[in-house]
Simulated assay, not measured.
Amino acid sequence: MNKILLTGFSGFTGRYILQFAVQMGLDIDCLSEDGTPKSKPINLLDYYSVRERVRETRPTSIIHLAAISHVQHEPASDFYAVNIGGTRNLLQALSELPSSSLTNNIFASSANIYGNSQQMDLDEKTPLLPVNDYGLSKKGMEELLFLWKGKIPITITRPFNYTGRGQDESFLIPKIVRAFKQKQEKLELGNLKVSRDFSDVRFIASAYLTLACKKSSFRILNLCSGNLISLEDVISTCSALTNHKLEVISNQKFLRKNEILKLRGNKTEMLKCLGYESAYSMRDTLTWMLSKEA
Score class of each variant (00 low, 15 high):
Met1Phe: 12
Asn2Leu: 11
Lys3Glu: 10
Gly8Ala: 06
Gly11Trp: 01
Thr13Ala: 12
Arg15Lys: 15
Glu33Phe: 15
Gly35Asp: 03
Lys38Leu: 14
Ile42Ser: 00
Asn43Gly: 13
Leu45Glu: 01
Tyr48Glu: 10
Val50Gly: 06
Arg51Glu: 13
Glu52Gly: 12
Arg58Tyr: 11
Arg58Ala: 11
Ser61Pro: 05
Ser69Ala: 09
His73Arg: 04
Ser77Tyr: 14
Asp78Ile: 01
Asp78Gly: 02
Val82Tyr: 06
Arg88Met: 06
Ala93Cys: 09
Ser95Met: 11
Glu96Gln: 14
Glu96Met: 10
Leu97Pro: 07
Ser99Pro: 15
Ser99Lys: 14
Ser101Ala: 05
Ser101His: 07
Ser109Met: 05
Ser110His: 04
Asn112Trp: 09
Ile113Tyr: 15
Ser117Asp: 01
Thr126Glu: 12
Pro127Ala: 15
Lys139Ile: 06
Lys139Asn: 03
Gly140Trp: 15
Glu143Leu: 15
Leu144Asn: 04
Leu144Pro: 02
Leu147Ser: 08
Trp148Ile: 01
Arg158Tyr: 05
Arg158Gly: 00
Arg158Trp: 12
Phe160Pro: 00
Arg165Gln: 04
Asp168Lys: 04
Asp168Asn: 15
Glu169Trp: 10
Phe171Glu: 08
Val177Asn: 02
Gln182Cys: 13
Lys186Met: 06
Leu189Phe: 02
Asn191Leu: 12
Leu192Ile: 13
Leu192Asp: 04
Ser195Lys: 14
Asp197Pro: 01
Phe198Tyr: 14
Phe198Met: 05
Phe203Ile: 00
Ala205Cys: 09
Ala207Trp: 02
Leu209Gln: 03
Leu228Ile: 09
Leu231Val: 10
Thr237Glu: 12
Cys238Met: 13
Ala240Tyr: 08
Leu241Met: 09
Thr242His: 07
Glu247Asn: 13
Phe254Thr: 15
Lys262Gln: 14
Arg264Cys: 02
Thr268Asp: 15
Glu269Pro: 01
Met270Ala: 07
Cys273Tyr: 11
Tyr276Ile: 07
Asp284Gly: 07
Asp284Tyr: 03
Leu286Asn: 13
Glu293Lys: 15
